[in-house]
Each structure stands twice: as structure tokens, then as C-alpha cells.
């Protein structure tokens, strides 16, 4: 189940929302949702707290592969307390055989062209007919800006069942012109998988951006559109897996 969680694509739309208009000011904490959805890599330059405002809130929901009851949803909040970036993230994957939930809190630091955050939380897996299994989660995310590039890294370890899993995601966002971006990523989710991903974000209008990408790890093609209006950004996307089929989702992000 956990493996499934890590290979599904959903709140990646949140990534789209934030990354589309401006990739430079984000990168901070690849979030729980992205990791759960296995799209952290695409999220380089994705989000990182209020973009000039006091707070940012994001919601996302996606149905997966047209399977009844299989969907993932989540929310996250970023703000700053006395200048210190903090965040909270919740995600839930529901399925016909059980559910996995995850909650994390994070605290960050910002320096000269770099950002970092430390997060901690818990991941719980509840399968029908089995006891709920909880695992502590610790993660570190870091990023730096180099000219028109944003580089990010996310390391996470999850203990559980007498074992400890390590995850690593590296990503690079290159900005082209005013708002177009290319995101390349490299993600390690477990033995035998070091997946490459690439995505392009192209602005069609001051309020409309399109995103298209491919992730080698999940073998998923992704297409999404982002509409920005005032403080809100809405994204809708479709993910296509050659065997599992199609998923679709919606996300919403707002800045104050």
C-alpha cells in the first residue's frame, strides 16, 4: 500500500499552481502530498510558503484510475511566525482496502539564496482487518537559487516494521523568459527505482498556464492547466498511465 502511495500522482497539481506563475520564490518544502503521490521531483520550485504574503493554503483532490473509492486528498498551510517559516500538511489516501494518512509539521530557515526546512510527522496505515501501523517520518528539504535555476533536494526517512526507508528527490527548475519553466527531477523511492522526470510549464496568458510532463518512475504522462485569479490559483490535470489508466484531479491554492 505504501508503495502504491508513493507512486501515485495527485496533489502535484498544487505544484503546478505555484510553479506556473513564478518558480523562483517557492522551493522550500516538498510536501507530504507530493511524496505520497510520488511527484516530489516535479515539485522542485514548487511551494515554500507565502509568496510575498502572510500565508498560503492549498487543497487538492484526485480520483485515481477510475477505481471507486481510490482517491487522495490533502491540504497544507504555510505561514511565518516571527519571521520563521512554518508549515503543516495533511494527506489521506483512501482505497477499498484501507487508508493511509499522513501528518507533518515543518519549520524552515531562509538565507542568502537558500532555504531549508526540517519536518517531522507520522504516517499511519490502516488496512481492513489489520491493526493500524504508524511510522514516524523525518525529512529535510533544501533549495538554492542559481541565476535562473532553482535546485532542490528532499531527503526523508520513514521507520516502520523494523526497517527504515530512505527517500531522495533532486530537482532543478529552469526559468525561461518571464514565466515559462522546465522542471527536471530525479527521485529515489526504494531499491531498483531512480526515476527521471521532466515537465514544462508554458504561460498562454497572464492568467493561464499549461503544464505537460512525464515521469519515468510512474510511467505517467501529465497534462494540466492553471488559472490564476486574484489570490487564488486553480489547477486541473489529467494523468495517464499506460496500464492503470487515467486519473484526474483538481487543486486550489490561495495567498494572503
Amino acid at each position: 500500500m505504501r508503495t502504491v502511495l508513493r507512486s501515485l500522482p495527485v496533489l502535484w497539481l498544487c505544484v503546478v499552481i505555484v510553479a506556473a506563475p513564478r518558480a523562483s520564490a517557492q522551493v522550500a518544502f516538498p510536501s507530504v502530498e507530493e511524496r505520497v503521490l510520488g511527484v516530489r521531483g516535479d515539485g522542485a520550485g514548487m511551494h515554500g510558503g507565502p509568496d510575498g504574503g502572510r500565508a498560503r493554503i492549498e487543497f487538492g483532490d484526485m480520483e485515481l484510475f477510475g477505481i471507486a473509492g481510490l482517491r487522495i486528498s490533502g491540504a497544507r498551510l504555510f505561514t511565518a511566525v516571527r519571521g520563521v517559516p512554518v508549515g503543516a500538511e495533511l494527506a489521506r489516501l483512501g482505497s477499498p482496502v484501507g487508508a493511509q494518512q499522513r501528518a507533518c509539521g515543518s519549520i524552515g530557515w531562509r538565507g542568502d539564496r537558500w532555504r531549508a526546512s526540517l519536518r517531522a510527522g507520522v504516517e499511519s496505515l490502516a488496512l481492513r482487518g489489520a491493526a493500524t501501523e504508524s511510522s514516524p517520518v523525518i525529512g529535510l528539504a533544501s533549495a538554492a537559487d542559481v541565476g535562473s535555476l532553482s535546485l532542490s533536494a528532499d531527503v526523508e526517512t520513514i521507520a516502520g516494521g523494523g526497517d527504515r526507508a530512505w527517500l531522495l528527490a533532486l530537482a532543478m527548475t529552469g526559468r525561461i523568459g518571464a514565466r515559462a519553466s522546465v522542471v527536471t527531477s530525479l527521485r529515489y523511492d526504494g531499491p531498483g527505482a531512480l526515476a527521471l522526470g521532466v515537465a514544462a510549464i508554458a504561460p498562454l496568458h497572464s492568467r493561464l498556464s499549461l503544464l505537460a510532463g512525464y515521469d519515468d518512475g510512474t510511467e505517467t504522462l501529465r497534462v494540466a492547466a492553471v488559472i490564476a485569479t486574484g489570490r487564488w490559483r486553480v489547477a486541473s490535470g489529467v494523468f495517464r498511465h499506460p496500464v492503470l489508466g487515467q486519473s484526474q484531479g483538481l487543486s486550489l491554492a490561495g495567498d494572503w
Partner: peptide, 20 residues
């Protein structure tokens, strides 16, 4: 590979390396 270096208020120095 990309190596970056930065600091925070001149007191904390942060160096990072990304490599493929």
C-alpha cells in the same frame, strides 16, 4: 554537478552539492 554556497547573516554558512 552544481555546488552552491550561501550564508545567513554572515554567521551560518551553507554549502550544497547536487550531482548526477
Amino acid at each position: 554537478a552544481v555546488r552552491t554556497a550561501g550564508d545567513r547573516d554572515g554567521a551560518l554558512r551553507v554549502e550544497q552539492l547536487w550531482q548526477l
